[in-house]
């Protein structure tokens, strides 16, 4: 008589017993233990790498953080998704949209930096205006227009001086650039939708217009060579 179980219940029970015995051996093995430790370590590291920690999530509900540029704790997560390697068939449009989100965050930060500089300039203008107004050596101000003119002159000089500082020029440059990058990324998204619907994209139009330009240029050159001695 065979020692094989006779019915399927016994067969299934035998299979699970064998599997459980093997599992016990596997779980007890040092190799398994080290893998488990690696996973635990990976899990601990992964969340902060993505910028999402318990502490950072709390800031999402802190009103004092709401006025700040960018998405705060989610910035790093978006950056990780956008800057990571791309895949042939996965998330192409999603990555474009996420990148636009990331660029908008950068633009908001650049705008905030620019505004801080401008706030400083206006504060300085007010300070200088008050000093001018209270300068006992100055000509008396007897009309609202004289007062307004003094404010305009003082504020104008202060702002012009600010506009020429390397800090302002760099802040303006960064704001211009990040605005441009946002716009270009938005165009990429728009073009992705256009391509789905077989609508000509801006890039395709640029190519066509370049060809028209080249043809016109050649035509003008031909006309010129034909009409002049």
């Amino acid at each position: 008589m065979s020692d094989k179980p006779e019915n399927w219940m016994e067969q299934a029970g035998a299979m699970f017993k064998t599997w459980a015995d093997q599992q016990q051996k596997i779980f007890a093995a040092p190799l398994w233990q080290s893998s488990v430790e690696q996973w635990a370590s990976f899990a601990q590291k992964a969340m902060p790498q993505a910028g999402v920690t318990a502490e950072s999530l709390k800031t999402l509900f802190d009103p004092s953080q709401w006025a700040q540029a960018g998405l705060g704790p989610l910035d790093a997560a978006i950056e990780h998704l956008v800057d990571g390697p791309s895949y042939a068939t996965l998330w192409t449009l999603d990555r474009k949209i996420l990148k636009a989100q990331k660029l908008r965050g950068e633009w908001a930060k650049d705008l905030a930096a620019y505004q801080i500089l401008m706030h400083g300039a206006w504060n300085e203008a007010i300070k200088r205006f008050l000093m001018e107004m209270n300068d006992a050596q100055g000509t008396p101000i007897t009309s609202w227009r004289q007062l307004t003119d003094l404010w305009i002159k003082t504020a104008n000089e202060t702002l012009v001086a600010t506009h020429r500082t390397p800090e302002f020029l760099e802040a303006q440059r960064r704001l211009t650039r990040s605005g441009v990058e946002c716009r270009l990324q938005e165009r990429e998204i728009a073009e992705a939708f256009c391509e789905m619907q077989q609508i000509p994209t801006r890039t395709e139009m640029d190519e066509v217009q370049r060809e028209v330009y080249e043809l016109r240029r050649r035509l003008r050159a031909l006309e010129k060579s034909g009409s002049r001695p």
Binding site: V160, H163, R164, P166, L169, E170, Q172, R173, T176, R177, V180, E181, R183, L184, R187, D206
Partner: peptide, 22 residues
């Protein structure tokens, strides 16, 4: 100021500005 502003841009800034606006 135009001279200062223009020199504050990098050549790549100019290229990207034109690329975005045409």
């Amino acid at each position: 100021f135009i001279n200062l502003w223009t020199r504050s841009l990098t050549p790549e800034d100019v290229d990207r500005l034109i690329e975005a606006n045409g």
